[in-house]
Amino acid sequence: MTTGFAAVPRTATRPVAVAATGGHRKLPLRRQLLLQLVCLFIALTVLFPIMWIVSMAIDPRNIARPDGLDLIPPGASLAAFAQVIKQPTENPVSFPQLAANSLFIAVIIAVASVGLGVLAAYAFSRMAFRGREALMIAVLAVLMLPAVATLAPLYVMLSKVQIGTFNLRDSLFGVALAVTSGQLPFAIWNMKGYIDTIPRDLEEAAAVDGASKFQAFWHVILPLSTPVLAVTAFFGFIAGWTEFYFSWQFLDHPENFTLAMALNGMVGQYGTTPWSQFAAFSILVALPVSVVYLFLQRYIVSGLAIGGVKG
């Protein structure tokens, strides 16, 4: 119905001059081998922590503490995974329960930051209005602050919101609100940067055809912004999925605990958690978001490049 994904290839395939550094000659074999060694060494440093964790997680001996560097375990077993799925910490909470709590926070943050943010991003990108400068500075100022900056006031403010036995601070919804507080300015900024790069011709054509601002936004800008919507939602999702500081500070009841809180419980210096289970738990937390990240990566990278060129 609309022009659809026209913007996607435009930004995803940026100008690529393949033979950039120098030309047509073939690489001499000695240099080739030397560079291969360097690249291989770098690859090993990148993969080293991952091999260490994966080998501990699948080691059939279910090690409490490893006594040597076994990057390739003597066999494979999913016993450690089974144990952490059942009960990762001493608290009587299962992995699915923790994951459901983190998922709840993550989805709220993703939906709220994109849904509210994209409207504001469009206004900042496309409209001239009184107070624009001041509002943009306000958003940027918050963007500069770390998430911890609002910890104290949000903690005391949300603690005062008590309805019967429900305390907003001591709830997953309260945590989601607190994270959204920092995530929304980022979402606005990120999406504004992308909308800035969409040519205005299409909206102008729509305006000539009698479309209102909102129709132009809905039928032209929104479909063209799909990549940045996905990326921004995903960043919001990660922020919620791995959220630690607000949930650790806010939540009192084990049935509300999140993945990151359980992880924190497993890594204490005097912790009794077997390392095989810590490794399995880390993989279970990281894998879903890491895989999605790999798929979205080219959009994220092209977004970064746009931001970089714009300065």
């Binding site: 209005f129 306000a138 900056a149 609002t150 929304l184």
Partner: peptide, 26 residues
């Protein structure tokens, strides 16, 4: 123009006012 712009901004501004700007002033 300003009114249209603020219509787009309103949801985000309201939320940020309550959970971002007010806490920072508080």
């Amino acid at each position: 123009n300003t009114r249209t712009a603020y219509l787009f901004l309103l949801p985000a501004l309201l939320v940020m006012l309550v959970i971002t700007f007010y806490p920072l002033v508080f």
